[in-house]
Design a protein around this nucleic acid. Structure first.
Lengths: 229, 229
DNA sequence: ACTGTTTTTTAGCTTTGGCTAATTCTAAAT
DNA sequence: ATTTAGAATTAGCCAAAGCTAAAAAACAGT
């Protein structure tokens, strides 16, 4: 009754593949090699799986030319992404996990929980729209907010923005950003964007200025602030 | 760092078997058939698995005479039981699950969570000693409270007792007991225990009396109350 | 257009954990 | 002491997912 669209529950590794393809989904088809790397699996295994995913109707696959998700594949992927992000939110906000540990645990859990669990968890968490990294949480129907944030390096000087998410795998970088209070939700004024050296200078609410160089500025995504003042 | 005894994580179905053997563990060895039924698996599969569990050192197994847990098998089982009961507690107390749904979900989750998760969850729940059914939660080191509660049918008339747990698979029965306020923790006075028809009559805190017949009285487990007054 | 590198696929094997059918053993009843 | 019903085991099979090694296709550079 709570498990909404009761498609037969694909085996856990099918989900891994679909999600991996979605993750590197941007343009066109995901290559065998990319997926193999992301899942720490041999390219041969990916080749095999592409065929099976195709049979299941989750991907479109042309020999030697990678695979891309079908509509139903995308829905399945977003279902898992929703789970993943809700679980991460719970682990971080309520169980005291830190960013390092959270991903691995969520990755395992997302294959074990039911849709019913997922929705109750969403309820428990107050139906958040973003996870603690600032990534949007897909809706139950497989809808995902259209992406309209850009890395700080693409922001325009003089605008007022809000940090939408911080995306980086490097722990020290994340720690540094967190220590500086540069976390999702934080409003900033963009003072300078220097094309030459890629440094971006911003001012936070408290009037404190931060200069972010190459790797940092590219990890911080912002959205133009709506309200003025 | 939180994952205490890092034995290699047995595959999920190994855990199922060990837990099943523990569940029906009481006296001597668990039979192939019993385990097969409990896990909804063919007896042949159980036979095979018994051999493997023996090789892994988790059970002692004599051909044609069932399997019983070794010390390390029991530790493994209790590790899973701990997980299971903590997860059930969480699902019931925080996600609004009811008894019907809770078991299945916990069964799946207990194979996906890490020891680290388990301990953080225990922390989150305030290190409960009993789950919502009144079953004791094994400690991290595989210690389990010695069982000293008896079904109401075995209680002595005139004693003051406390409900320790309610154990029954039948939903209507559980509902009825819950509606009557006969839940774990509730103190009762045992007024009569009638050998002939198996009816037990008790009085609760509010002075209300309840007459429990056959199936009910055997589902309610009690422990003699310590303090007098 | 050719050649060499890289990527992808195929073929064939492995492990887990199931299954059924056939066989063997145990235990209970005569 | 036999017989026989029920339980346990074995043998042989299947499917999922992985792997390695070898073959084939695609791509890039000249």
């Amino acid at each position: 009754m709570t498990d909404s669209v009761v498609s037969k529950p694909f085996s856990s590794s099918v989900g891994d593949y679909v999600k991996a393809i979605w993750d590197l989904g941007g343009t066109g088809a995901a290559s065998t090699k990319e997926v193999a790397e992301r899942l720490s699996v041999s390219p041969a295994s990916v080749s095999n799986m592409f065929v099976r995913l195709q049979e299941m109707g989750l991907v479109r696959h042309e020999r030697y030319h990678g695979a891309s998700l079908t509509d139903s594949g995308r829905v399945e992927a977003l279902r898992l992404v929703r789970r993943h992000r809700l679980i991460e939110t719970f682990l971080l906000e309520h169980l005291g996990y830190n960013r390092q540990e959270v991903h691995e645990e969520a990755e395992r859990l997302e294959h074990a929980v039911s849709d019913g669990f997922t929705e109750r968890l969403a309820e428990f968490l107050g139906h958040p729209e973003y996870d603690p990294h600032g990534e949007p949480i897909p809706a139950t129907d497989g809808t995902l907010e259209v992406e309209n944030s850009v890395p700080l390096t693409e922001a325009r000087a003089g605008t007022r923005v809000r940090i939408s998410k911080v995306r980086n795998d490097d722990a020290p970088i994340l720690d540094h950003l967190e220590d500086s209070g540069l976390v999702p939700g934080r409003p900033l004024s963009v003072l300078q964007v220097r094309e030459l050296d890629g440094v971006v200078i911003v001012e936070d609410e408290d009037g404190k200025t931060h200069a972010l160089g190459e790797p940092l500025a590219r990890s911080v995504f912002v959205r133009e602030a709506l309200g003025g003042a």
